[in-house]
Design a protein around this nucleic acid. Structure first.
Lengths: 122, 122
DNA sequence: GCAACCTTGACACGATCGTGGTAAGGTTGC
DNA sequence: GCAACCTTACCACGATCGTGTCAAGGTTGC
């Protein structure tokens, strides 16, 4: 048998058993179960646990955020809604006459530049 | 001038002024500023504020999660990392011999079915 | 059949989130 | 030049997050 139980998996991956259950509850890594209900971590799960840890550390994200990313992948509805909201940022609103629109765009442009290039000092 | 100040914008959108500043801090809606630093909400910003509210309510997401979605859009590095992690779920790990692999796949299959189809009763 | 391990569930606790308020001071428009 | 509004910065506070521990009971492997 090359599948580990939760404590063994915890030891080799650096997560705590508690966290492994939490990660599972978020839907991120759901190991198969033995007939009696024990979680069984195979090489694939162990690898994913390690890369998950790396992902979190490298990019300063939380489990909850990866959980949200998962939700976005599973819930196409949600994904489109979020995407649409962001896309609308560049869509030109109907009610603004062209002259004003130019002003908005210019403002937005500097804002975008600032947001993209600035070192957030706060 | 068809731009509103923060309190006016708050009134017409249903957000509190406090929240408008918060939404801005998350990078979601950053209105241009007057020479003196006042936030100026134009039709575009007002519209986005309304649709944002709708997005949150419809899909039971939080501002922080939309903030994370924004981060994913701005930080290509992060986006690829997260995407890569999810893609790896279906990539076959090198070390598992084909016979075992089949077992893993079967297990995973039922897990996926369960995760996708189940009404989460808890 | 027993020791060692696993399961779920509960309570706990600091940290962060979402939201509000208030204070000290600058801006705007008449 | 003043009233009304805006700005940032801070304190607050309940809710959720991330994480731990413990209890009661089921599994596993020898």
């Amino acid at each position: 048998m090359d599948a580990l139980t939760i404590n063994e998996a915890a030891e080799t991956t650096g997560w705590s058993p508690r966290m492994l259950r939490y990660v599972e509850r978020l839907g991120l890594i759901e190991p198969p179960r033995s007939a009696g209900g024990y979680r069984l971590y195979g090489p694939a799960e162990l690898q994913r646990l390690r890369t998950l840890r790396e992902l979190l550390e490298t990019h300063e994200v939380g489990l909850g955020e990866i959980g949200f990313a998962l939700r976005m992948r599973r819930d196409r509805e949600l994904r489109s809604a979020v995407d649409a909201w962001f896309e609308a940022q560049v869509a030109r609103p109907q009610h603004v006459p062209a002259s004003d629109w130019l002003r908005w765009e210019q403002d937005k442009h500097s804002r975008l530049l600032a947001a993209a290039g600035a070192t957030p000092s706060t």
